[in-house]
């Protein structure tokens, strides 16, 4: 079990060894994001940009015009919130092959609290035309996605978690862009999850099985583009759909699923579970998972509540 950030740092060096177009631009958090691997092993492919994220996005875009494919390295919130305009105008609108890599994404970022927790990123990045939006479940999917990104000639948003989760996949995993992935079958309820939350959602399904509830679990690695037909076919026979994400319930995976269901499956009930339109706080991971309802036990309890007809936010 490896932390996503460790895999990100290692994979980046591997990709840069194979492809001289790969450079990493760091906003002074290389030792946190693990871009430091690149600084140590391939210093010519590592560019320190200082604590100046808006400039960093512009520099990356400028480098793409001479063939480079820059990977941005900093905490997600400083890209998706602080540099949103730069990503919008310089990356999304120009279709530049900049890799917007959000380290320390979501709720769990080492007790740094609400200033550093990026819980709106999927909503804003998903709203950007041209942007590919990826949220890997585990270390294996992250590495597979990075190999795919390396060949992709356009802008990508990649949501990287700080810490390790129980793996969902293994080394044989192949990332198929757009596709949704059914990782557990069950007929009583359909859980849809993304990013590292998928691992905890799968554990929740296992807890539910012990209580006589069989949950299907569908993982959405690519929020954009999305295989809409594939998602519809996964949800068409659902008694009830619960989306579970380490993100605000506004505009992220839950919003995405609700949009698809509204268009294609009217009548299917969707309950969105995640950060319920509130800011979080500094605290150890177990506390945050419990309080904000994202640990396996809390997700399982939520599903039971929904199946019993409730949905308290």
């Amino acid at each position: 079990m490896k932390a996503q950030r460790a895999v990100w740092g290692e994979t980046l060096v591997k990709l840069a060894r194979e492809d001289s177009r790969v450079v990493v631009l760091d906003a002074d958090l290389a030792t946190s994001t693990q871009a430091v691997n690149m600084a140590n092993e391939l210093p010519e492919s590592f560019l320190e940009m200082g604590i100046a994220e808006a400039n960093m996005v512009g520099v990356a875009m400028g480098m793409t015009t001479l063939g480079y494919r820059p990977w941005l390295s900093t905490f997600g919130v400083f890209l998706t919130s602080r540099s949103l305009d730069q990503i919008r105008v310089l990356v999304s609108q120009t279709h530049a092959p900049v890799r917007v890599c959000a380290a320390y994404s979501g709720l769990l970022n080492g007790s740094a609290g609400k200033t550093h927790q990026d819980l709106e990123d999927l909503a804003t990045m998903r709203a950007m035309p041209n942007m590919v939006v990826l949220a890997p479940a585990d270390e294996f999917e992250l590495a597979a996605m990075m190999a795919w990104i390396a060949e992709y000639d356009g802008p990508v948003y990649l949501r990287v978690a700080r810490d390790a989760v129980a793996p969902v996949f293994d080394e044989s995993y192949e990332f198929k862009p757009e596709a949704v992935v059914r990782i557990r079958d069950g007929a009583d309820v359909t859980l849809v999850s993304t990013g590292v939350q998928t691992s905890r959602t799968l554990e929740a399904a296992q807890l539910l099985a012990g209580e006589g509830i069989e949950a299907r679990v569908v993982h959405v690695p690519s929020l954009k583009p999305l295989d809409v037909a594939g998602l519809v076919s996964e949800l068409a026979d659902a008694k009830v759909v619960v989306t579970v994400e380490e993100h605000s319930i506004i505009g992220g995976l839950g919003g995405l699923v609700a949009e698809v269901v509204a268009d294609e499956l009217p009548g299917v009930r969707v309950v969105r579970h995640g950060l319920a339109d509130k800011w979080s706080e500094s605290a150890p991971t177990p506390y945050l998972l419990e309080k904000y309802g994202l640990g396996p036990r809390q997700v399982a309890d939520k599903v039971v509540e929904v199946l019993n007809g409730g949905n308290e936010k």
Partner: peptide, 13 residues
């Protein structure tokens, strides 16, 4: 406010 950053990226490259 964005143009000089692009210019830096081009010049570094």
């Amino acid at each position: 406010g964005m143009g000089l950053s692009i210019g830096i990226g081009i010049s570094i490259a």
